[in-house]
């Protein structure tokens, strides 16, 4: 069981206060089929401050080809929410874990049951990318009372008046969407990522983490000059889809850590 106690938000704020830039890598629950849970403790040892655990969903509309493929492989091999949570519960990364899935997984299980099952698995927070501010209420209340922090996304398309309302409701951190598009690697860091980070830093003291399109150590370092940290997903998963081992994925996270530590 995860030895981490406390909240994701306090943890990230105290890491930030110690001068660290925050690193949040992503793991697809059930990919690679053999050894995916090793990524959890491995990423923590490589310097992750927290991490996202994807619970694969059949119709991931916010995801590009890489995460889609990993999810599809996991699902084809029998990955399901209960199974993922059971296996996560047997790991002890010592850092906060964040479930990342689509709303129907939570809706179908029932808000309270889903929130409590996250808690029991040693998970601190949840990201549901198809559940925007206007629809988040019923879930967020159930999550709040179960002690699960609901992380909201802020996107470059949001008008200025919208951002403060999102920032107000988010827990753990504010997830700034780095570009107008789905998850996936890009050759260069989008200018929208820096702009998003600036807009969010201007209005909140909550940790500002940028994800989607952050593709390599140098891009991570670049955006971390403005943001408090990064989520990196496709770049990690792609390495394994191309035949890289779990250890190589962990090594890549260590490279991201080193790049962030140089900022």
């Amino acid at each position: 069981m995860n030895g981490f106690t406390g909240t994701l938000e306090e943890h990230l704020i105290s890491r930030r206060a110690s001068g660290a830039k925050l690193l949040l890598p992503y793991v697809t629950g059930g990919y690679p089929v053999d050894g995916w849970t090793r990524l959890i403790e491995g990423f923590a040892q490589a310097g992750a401050d927290a991490m996202e655990i994807g619970i694969p969903f059949s119709d991931p509309v916010m995801d590009g080809p890489t995460i889609q493929e990993a999810s599809a492989i996991a699902l084809a091999n029998g990955s399901n929410p209960s199974g993922v949570l059971d296996e996560v519960a047997r790991t002890d990364p010592g850092v906060p874990l964040i479930a990342m899935t689509y709303y129907n997984v939570a809706y179908h299980m029932g808000h309270q049951r889903f929130a409590e099952s996250l808690k029991r698995a040693g998970i601190s927070a949840a990201i549901l990318p198809d559940l925007p501010l206007e629809e988040v209420g019923p879930w967020a209340e159930a999550a709040d009372s179960a002690g699960i922090e609901t992380v909201l996304l802020a996107a470059p398309t949001a008008p200025d008046e919208r951002l403060p309302r999102i920032v107000e409701r988010t827990r753990g951190f504010i997830y700034g969407v780095g570009l107008v598009g789905t998850t996936g690697e890009r050759a260069a860091l989008a200018s929208s990522a820096l702009e998003m980070a600036r807009r969010l830093k201007d209005i909140t003291d909550k940790p500002v983490i940028i994800g989607i399109g952050v593709s390599n150590p140098s891009q991570a370092a670049e955006i971390a000059q403005v943001a408090d940290g990064v989520v990196v997903a496709s770049a990690i998963i792609r390495r394994m889809l191309e035949g890289g081992s779990v250890d190589q994925a962990i090594e890549f996270v260590a490279e991201l850590r080193a790049a962030l530590d140089s900022v």
Partner: peptide, 9 residues
């Protein structure tokens, strides 16, 4: 309206 935040506006 259950869409990614990017599409809400």
């Amino acid at each position: 309206r259950f869409v990614p935040e990017t599409l809400v506006p």
